[in-house]
Design a protein around this nucleic acid. Structure first.
Lengths: 205, 205
DNA sequence: CACCTTTTGTGAAAGATTTCTCTGTCATTT
DNA sequence: AAATGACAGAGAAATCTTTCACAAAAGGTG
């Protein structure tokens, strides 16, 4: 129990569980069981129960889990029972799609600042956002106390952007640039490189 | 050796190695060592060597790996030593960004058909693509012999789209919709849900 | 109320993955 | 030509993760 050293791989599955619970709730369900989740997610029911057992006892024997309650607990564990401000660096096609991606807001992640290096873009509007100069990253991040950033710049500049962000106090980076970032310990990084996923699948074709 | 049951987790790292090798080559390097890759990627050198050992012996003791050669081998293993056609379903903001994402083409993945359900969009141009009616998915996929598809539609319609794609002969799906898909065995699926990655990081904040 | 069914939580076992450690090879230096 | 240092490959060991299997709890049923 307690958050003391729960395996990373377990943490990685919690958002999937949370997503499934939201889905079930929308369907009007109130109660579910590890087996039902397992069927939906392609994960064994034992694993789901074991994963949850790291954090406490959330179910009722013979019945299953009260969806609303379990969801609330997972949200607390993942710290998504609150709103998070997010900085976005890169206002290209990708940045545009990210800035307008409705699921961020719907899940409590709010893009509150968009940066770009291109003088042609600085000051321009992108949807409801005014594009800010990358030079102002340190001040804006610090003034707003932003802890999470999304990198959507070309691979060439990603490391430099990451350095600036970390320096400014960012503690979690979602990196869309196809490059492994070097960051100090304690800074979280997650990668989204669609090419990597495609290459992983072609192996099996 | 041979492709007989190499752990999935190993396959998942190969694209990362490949990406790093491309990077080193662009930097003008010819030779590298497992330790150098390890430093760059934050993976142990032993693991890199063990991973590669599943497929053969690519290095030279005392020297390291000839980058160009190792890259060629990895490309063969991952079957990315050829070009792949890709179908894209969903012509919203996300689909737009995906259709214009240069890294796909640069890595041999070519979007050759874009589908949408919206009558307002069907027939319209999106960049260099003419948006096709989702109804035509089966015929187009089959006629063009496309094996890989990207789903960029809302969660509500993703499962239905996946069913249609699989029915049409698609064998690998990159799913941007925030929902776990149910597909028959033998069909590969990879997921990209940025919210999941953000939630995974907030746990540690 | 006793019995039956369902389902959780969990220790133990099994399985998978990573790291360790050592041997042997290669290139370079002396 | 021998010595040295660098590094791959691989078996063994250690660690981590998943699955198994079962006791206990809850609710429903006759």
């Amino acid at each position: 129990m307690g958050s003391a050293d729960v395996p990373d791989i377990v943490i990685g599955r919690l958002p999937i569980y949370l997503r499934a619970l939201n889905f079930l709730l929308e369907e009007g369900k109130e109660i579910t069981a590890s087996q039902e989740l397992a069927d939906k997610l392609g994960i064994s029911s034992a694993q789901i129960r074991k994963d949850l057992s790291h954090f406490g006892e959330f179910g009722k024997q013979g019945t299953g889990y009260e969806i609303r309650y379990l969801r609330e607990q997972l949200r607390k564990i993942l710290k998504v029972d609150r709103e998070w401000d997010v900085a976005l660096v890169g206002a290209g096609d990708l940045g545009h799609a990210i800035a307008h991606y409705g699921n961020f807001d719907r899940n409590g992640f709010h893009v509150v600042a968009v940066f770009d290096h291109n003088p042609r873009k600085i000051g321009a509007k992108m949807g409801r956002f005014r594009i800010l100069d990358s030079e102002s990253i340190p001040t804006v991040i610090q003034d707003m106390g932003i802890q999470i950033a999304i990198i959507a710049v070309p691979a060439e500049s990603a490391q430099q952007v990451a350095d600036t962000l970390v320096e400014a106090g960012i503690r979690a980076i979602l990196n869309y640039a196809p490059i492994t970032l070097n960051v100090p310990p304690g800074v979280q990084v997650q990668y989204i490189d669609p090419v990597v996923y495609l290459q992983r699948m072609t192996y099996y074709l």
